[in-house]
Every structure is written in structure tokens, then in C-alpha cells.
Design a protein around this nucleic acid. Structure first.
Ligand code: ZN
Ligand code: ZN
Ligand code: ZN
Ligand code: ZN
Lengths: 137, 137
DNA sequence: CAACTTTCGGAAACGGTTGTCATTATAGTC
DNA sequence: GACTATAATGACAACCGTTTCCGAAAGTTG
């Protein structure tokens, strides 16, 4: 008996630490940064393990992933519903944007052109009020 | 006198060949594939040059770029207006989707949350009718 | 505790892209 | 048609986030 109900297999110290860290803030963060943060607080965890854990969490839908223009992946523990992200390109502060309408729009467009099995990627990048104020003066 | 009015600087054989190849079809293609195609038809051009040329064309807006989930970039000569892309994930066949409404929607959302200087990425990936028929039987 | 299985993690591999820099081509000017 | 300043080329190496390898370590079961 015991465990499961969280997508991950065995209940290891490392995975606990990664998921715990993800719960702490609502910024999108990279695997490498999460790794650094864990090491900085004395948690001995390998980078490979962080990558693997995030991969599993992403597959099971427990975290959301976005890709920066540079190609690196950022991870975040989000709320349950379908949504898009409005992300500050400087500090990664994120606002969830409920966007069911976009899904419907995409499905309709795809059907019109005979495409099936549609997946859409919609992310909004901008500069948040704080970051804009900083660079402003 | 002469040249210019096409974003590129000097008028070299290689750049002519790359732009000419881009005019030929309306699929999105990777830098490496474009390079292979040029070599295959006997045009001696280096991969680095293809990358650089595409970079310039992308910056000046003469070609559109999308990024596959794998991270590789695909390039295409598109029509002028603002649009999104409906791309077949198997054969890269592409339909342009005029979508001014999405811009406005994004701008409105961003403003609501105090974000400025917004950039949005919206692409639709699906399976086109032909590819669906093939895999279907 | 012993036996078995999963996970860990350092190091090496990967893959698309970008940087380096000596060589070559281009486009104005004589 | 030279001549020359300068931009472009391209083989090769470096980059960088990510993935794969595989022996060691830790979790789980009975
Ligand atoms: Zn989210
Ligand atoms: Zn910010
Ligand atoms: Zn386009
Ligand atoms: Zn197709």
C-alpha cells in the first residue's frame, strides 16, 4: 500500500524536493535554475534527476512548460483549468489567462482546412509593470 | 548603382540561390534541408551561409520562422499580411490563417495586467487531410 | 535482512545553431 | 579593365540546453 496519485513512481527525497520547490513560487523557472536553487539550500540532487522529474511532471500535466525564444524550457506549477500564460520576459512573473475561446477558434479553423488532431501553442511575452518601471528610470 | 531593396547586403550567388529556393514551394523547411537541397542540385554553398542568410531574411521579415517542438527552426516565404500558420506536423504543408483579432485580444489582455511591449506566439500544428488518409490505411 | 527493482547522478553524447578567421568574391573607383 | 576597400564565404570548432549511459545507491517487498 501507499504512494501514487501524483504521477511519479517511487517516493524519493529528490522528487519530493523538486515538487516542493515548484510549489513555492509562481514564476516559470528552468531546470538548471531549479537545480541551482536546490543545491544552494543544501539539497544534494543531480541535474539529470531534476530534468527527469520535470519531464515526468510535464507528461502527467502536473506542471506547465513554456519554451523561451532561446529554446530553454521553463516549468511552473499552475492551476487546473485550461489557460495560456502572460510571462514577463525579464523576471518570468506569470499571469494565467483563461482562454477557452482560442481552442474553439483553432478547432474551427483547422476543420475548415481539413486538418485534424490539432495542437496549438499560444504564449504571451511582455514586460511586467515592475520591470518596465525599473528600466524606465 | 544597383542592388538593395531586399534586405540583404551584397548580391552574392549563394544568397540568390537561397532566396530562389524559398520561392519555389510553400512548405516550411529547415536550414539543413534547404542546404541539402541546394547541394543536391549542384549549388556549392556552405551550411553556415544558409543559416546566416535565413537569419537576415527572418530579421527583415522577408521569411517567416516557426519552431518545432524539437527546437529546430523552419523557414518559409509567406505573403505580406499579418497571419498565423496551420502546419502539418508530418509534411509541413502550411495554410496561412489571417488572425488580426488575436493581436487585439492579446493587447487587451496584456494591458489589463500592466504588461507592455507584448509579443505573442501562436502556431497551429495538425495533420493535413492527405497525411491523415495515408496513416488511416 | 536479503533480494529485487527503480532511481540517482557524473560524465559523455547529442543536435541545431552560432562563432572564428583565413580565404574569396563583390562593388565602387581609377 | 585593373585596383582596392570591404563584406561574404565556409570548413571547423565551440556552444548550450537537453538526453543518454551505466555503475552505484536507495527504495520496496516479503
Ligand atoms: Zn499554466
Ligand atoms: Zn518582470
Ligand atoms: Zn507566414
Ligand atoms: Zn501532411
Amino acid at each position: 500500500m501507499a504512494e501514487e496519485a501524483h504521477g511519479l513512481g517511487r517516493h524519493t527525497r529528490q522528487r519530493q524536493q523538486v515538487t516542493a520547490l515548484l510549489e513555492e513560487t509562481d514564476e516559470f523557472r528552468s531546470a538548471q535554475r531549479l537545480h541551482e536553487m536546490l543545491r544552494a539550500r543544501g539539497v544534494p540532487v543531480g541535474l539529470t534527476t531534476v530534468y527527469r522529474t520535470l519531464q515526468i511532471l510535464a507528461e502527467t500535466g502536473e506542471v506547465d512548460v513554456i519554451r523561451l525564444p532561446s529554446g530553454e524550457h521553463l516549468y511552473r506549477r499552475c492551476s487546473a483549468g485550461r489557460h495560456h500564460h502572460l510571462v514577463c520576459r525579464h523576471c518570468a512573473r506569470t499571469v494565467e489567462i483563461p482562454g477557452p475561446g482560442v481552442d474553439q477558434w483553432a478547432g474551427r479553423i483547422a476543420l475548415q482546412h481539413g486538418y485534424v488532431d490539432i495542437a496549438q501553442t499560444l504564449e504571451l511575452f511582455g514586460t511586467c509593470a515592475d520591470c518596465a518601471a525599473q528600466s524606465g528610470t
